[in-house]
Computed example of a mutant assay.
Amino acid sequence: MTNPVNQELKQRRSIYALGKNVSQTPAQISETIEEAIRQSPTAFNSQTVRAVITFGENSDRVWDIVEAELKKVTPADRFPATQEKIASFRAGFGTILYFTETQTVHKLEADFPLYAANFANWAEQGLGGAQQAVWTALATENIGASLQHYNPLIDEKIKEAFDIPESWELRAQMPFGSIEAPAGEKEFLPDDVRFKIFE
Rank of each mutant, 00 (worst) to 15 (best):
V193W: 07
G126C: 08
K20S: 11
E156C: 03
T104A: 03
T25L: 00
F188D: 06
A87V: 04
A68M: 09
G126M: 08
K186N: 00
D60K: 13
P4F: 10
E34D: 11
P4C: 10
Q39Y: 07
A161V: 02
V134I: 11
R61Q: 15
F162E: 07
I179H: 01
E34P: 00
E35G: 00
G126T: 10
Q28K: 04
N151K: 02
E67A: 15
S167F: 11
N121A: 15
V105C: 04
G94R: 04
K85H: 09
L127C: 00
A81H: 10
E31R: 03
N45H: 09
E35V: 00
F112W: 11
A76S: 13
F198A: 02
E67N: 12
L189M: 10
S30R: 14
H106K: 14
N142M: 02
F176Y: 08
E180A: 05
F162L: 02
L97Y: 12
Q173I: 05
A139I: 09
P182C: 03
R171M: 07
Y16H: 14
A116D: 09
G56W: 06
T82K: 13
N118D: 15
Y115L: 13
E180C: 02
D191N: 11
S14K: 03
A116K: 15
A110R: 15
E166F: 03
T74C: 04
L189C: 00
